[in-house]
Design a protein around this nucleic acid. Structure first.
Lengths: 157, 157
DNA sequence: TGGCAAAGTTAGGTTGACCTAACTTCATTA
DNA sequence: TAATGAAGTTAGGTCAACCTAACTTTGCCA
């Protein structure tokens, strides 16, 4: 069974290779905010389980299966981050929280979150104004005039 | 420093007391899907840290501070669950995922999520139709006719 | 080309959370 | 009131993930 931690390491390796071209012990240690010996140990575990190719002093590369897992985690990560940014969480915090949350959502929730984001992105401009209304609401702690008028109307009816 | 696990125990104790009137070792063990000795051990830790009053063979009650923590966690839990239900995750799964996610959100994200839910709930009927549109989209994998018409119009303009 | 700094590893230890097996306490009822 | 089963605890262990201190390897350049 894979643990959330191992998933984190796979994701970090995946990102490191994409952005730096390689994944070294110290780099991953910095990324995950742990000390190098912890990384060496995890590299060995990932190697035993067949998710990375690890040669001492040469860093790691992902196996096909390791890459598949890393990509899945990374996809969930970006969906969660996107959602948090949509509801106006700062991008640094959104990224940080996504990193924590990514391991804890069921397939069902991930699916619905994807649909939700897709919906917002494909909604025609006119229909999607609600998200701007939310942004206003988020900043000012009250509904924008346009909405309040509608709400008042609703009350009168 | 409090750990996510201790938070989980506090929440479980809080819920047990609310629904059953007391929190016994075996009950909490069942709730958290662990064995009774694990619970006894955690009860002692929570007691040492001043979050519960623990007397051997008599179960636990929450201290003022313990209750505060439990209530916070529980509030986040219900917000996350509410959101997941809004995006059409089944209530059982929403509850289960909320339980996992509740410990991993920053104050900022929790704040924005609250606002988001509040926004949806206070949005006047007319403005809030988008959520129904999303529900349609979620079931049928395409925008409702009403939205598509608007989107097509948008393209022509 | 040899020595040195940076990168990486090994050894040994800690901590949190969990377990099983065996024990004790409690509460009930014959 | 004594015995019995349920509830709870203790003892002793495992495992994942982390650490520090000390060591080895590598790559570079004087």
């Amino acid at each position: 069974m894979i643990t959330k931690n191992l998933e984190d390491y796979l994701e970090a390796i995946y990102n490191s290779i994409r952005t730096r071209g390689h994944a070294g012990t110290n780099e991953i240690a910095r990324d995950l905010q742990v000390k190098p010996p912890s990384v060496t140990e995890m590299f060995r575990k990932l190697n035993e389980r067949g998710w990375v190719n690890y040669k001492k002093y040469e860093g790691v590369t992902l196996t096909r299966e390791g890459k598949r897992i890393a990509k899945n985690v990374s996809d969930v990560h970006s969906k969660v981050r996107k959602f948090l940014e949509l509801i106006q969480v700062s991008s640094e915090q959104a990224d940080e929280d996504a990193c924590q949350v990514e391991h804890h959502l069921s397939q069902e929730s991930i699916g619905q979150l994807s649909k939700f984001i897709e919906f917002i992105e494909n909604c025609p401009e006119e229909q999607a104004r609600w998200i701007e209304h939310f942004h206003y609401f988020s900043r000012h702690e009250e509904l924008p005039a346009e909405c309040r008028a509608a709400a008042d109307k609703g009350l009168r009816d």
